[in-house]
Design a protein around this nucleic acid. Structure first.
Lengths: 352, 352
DNA sequence: GTCAGTTCGGCAACCGGTTGCCAGCTCTTG
DNA sequence: CAAGAGCTGGCAACCGGTTGCCGAACTGAC
């Protein structure tokens, strides 16, 4: 592989001149520059990116960390992120941590010196851990708010309000929230939003969980919903009242909202397996509007996050930080959510 | 950030000694080595990976290129690949080319010098283009066979035989193959396998397409299946007989096999939208067994590829090549497929 | 013709590691 | 006690770019 030294020798100029001719237009005279370009092309010169990175320290690479690549929710986010990155000439490295905070930490440590910035999609790390990395490299979080770290999030409050109002309008008065991972910020925020909205609307709201944010987790949740005497597996963190409330049978709850679509779809399958009908016996609402949430049975009513925009906006903000821009504001960027009503929600059967 | 020079000064030794103490166990005496390690830890020394890459030329990074990250088929492959890579201490860069050969070429050119190897999942590039890259860097292809490039593929022949036999056993005699992208090797191979198996079984086999390998593509295919007088949109490449055959109405075909699950699911939706019932009027078979192929209506009978193993095996072979192993054989590694029978296939209605 | 200002190209240091080679020391062995 | 082998650690080159600084040549103004 030819280097600038080869090109320089061939042209009879100094390597520095070649470097400038190729990367600083106008710095060398038009005639030499042209000759250098021509020779470089003829020799098939390709700059060695590694050699460029070393002095400058910039790799023009950012990493997007997702908690579970198997969750279709990330596809649009990845698309948006990749698009924004490549538009700016940056390479996007994607890392899947399989829901493990340890893996997340390892990945970040490993890449700390080789990437220009971090984009965390639904991080599983503690706020403190996130801030530690954020002090060393530009960082943006998506679907997560951590003090002092710029973030982009869907409007969970507005979304949960829409979902709860939809259920209230249908006549539901008791709603169960199926929790996702305790380490998920979105999980905490969605539950909190639902609780406060439920209060305003005069609904009884409780939660069960945490469950793995997967279809299998949904089956487990369905079993717990129906089991009359099961212990509440409620996470005790946060407000304790839900945890201390006795678990009601599925008959006592006429509607459930899942932390995400996978959980909601799994719950629908589980409920139907247990002889309950959706939406006749139980209405189900998901979150995310993933691919396939429209082809399950019944098609899932779900809270659609602006996933692609989440990814794109996050990366754009990250790139701005990398280029030295001060974050315009410490406040998270909030993008609107949208409730998509399909067929998994209906008026409760009488008696509920 | 401290460097080995800082550590060396602090310890009163030469930088080379520090380098060796940290990366060549046994090369320096136990006492100095211990002192160096201690000082390095105390100063918070972290090696600069970029500096390590430059002289060695190895980044311990490989790239996995997928044609469409939104297709759930890749999730398990990515998982398998990521697992195999990180187990070997390698970083996996993931790149999504959105079905565009141009993007694929751009990505490869951009990363040619910065990664140690390429893993191509269902590449959209020509054989010649693939070989050009393969000459410069270790490469493995998945779901694709290119002369002289090691590959890992599912057993399409056996799989298509299983699918066709299943349909024949049910009593179907006319099968339509819904083509995916013309640039997809798997598409060509699956069609070819189906045609030859169909011949052996005495079935009439035709194909329509190509269609985008998405749910929307499946809707389009459904429309073409039903439209009695539509022009065949058959790709003319390869065997021409399908292209020149007149398109039959859906009534003339009692079973379809889709290039992938997305296409099959879209076709089911489209057919049902057009008033046909699956499987009563038309049986549908997909390929891939993606997440969600079990929760569509009806649950899809599909040819499951060993996706995770595909990814893992591919990466393992790639890493072996990077470490200098000669590929054991020029022949592709073939992994078994498995037909998963669900509810989208049934005996044809009388008259079909 | 002189002088200031501009343009252009070269020299050399630098980024931070790795590694071939060699010198000095210690230990073994005859 | 001397010669040879083995162990340690240092020197310096190298990977391939970028960039600060400097001087030569050229330009234009007076």
């Amino acid at each position: 592989m030819p280097t600038i030294y080869d090109v320089a020798r061939e042209c009879g100029v100094a390597p520095s001149t070649v470097s400038r001719a190729l990367s600083q237009p106008g710095r060398v005279s038009a005639t030499t520059s042209e000759r250098i370009h021509e020779v470089a092309a003829r020799m098939g010169y390709q700059p060695n990116p590694l050699a460029k990175y070393l002095p400058t320290g910039r790799t023009e690479t950012i990493v997007l960390i997702v908690s579970d690549i198997a969750n279709p929710v990330y596809s649009p986010m990845i698309r948006g992120a990749e698009e924004a990155a490549s538009r700016a000439g940056y390479t996007l490295v994607l890392s899947d941590i399989e829901e493990s905070p340890e893996r997340e930490r390892d990945v970040m440590e490993k890449l700390l010196r080789t990437v220009d910035g971090f984009a965390l999609a639904t991080s599983r790390l503690s706020d403190a851990a996130i801030r530690t990395i954020a002090r060393q490299r530009p960082m943006v979080t998506m679907n997560r708010v951590t003090q002092q770290v710029p973030s982009v999030v869907p409007d969970n409050d507005q979304g949960m309000r829409a979902a709860a109002t939809h259920l209230a309008d249908l006549g539901h008065s008791r709603v169960t929230y199926i929790s996702g991972p305790a380490t998920s910020w979105a999980n905490v925020v969605r539950w909190r939003a639902l609780r406060s909205v439920g209060e305003q609307l005069g609904m009884k709201v409780r939660r069960i969980g945490p469950y793995a944010p997967t279809v299998a987790g949904g089956w487990a949740a369905a079993a717990d919903l129906v089991k009359p005497d099961s212990k509440a597996r409620s996470g005790n963190r946060g407000a304790g009242e839900a945890a201390s409330a006795p678990v009601r049978t599925a008959a006592a709850t006429s509607a459930v909202i899942g932390y995400n679509d996978l959980l909601a779809i799994g719950a629908m399958q589980g409920l139907s397996d247990l002889g309950l009908s959706v939406p006749a016996d139980v209405s189900v609402v998901g979150c995310d509007n993933i691919l396939g949430s429209d082809w399950c049975t019944p098609p899932l009513t779900t809270l659609a996050s602006p996933l692609r925009e989440l990814g794109a906006t996050g990366v754009r903000n990250l790139l701005a930080m990398i280029k030295g821009a001060q974050p315009r504001s410490r406040r998270p960027v909030v993008l609107p959510s949208q409730l998509i009503v399909r067929e998994s929600t209906a008026a409760p059967a009488k008696g509920n």
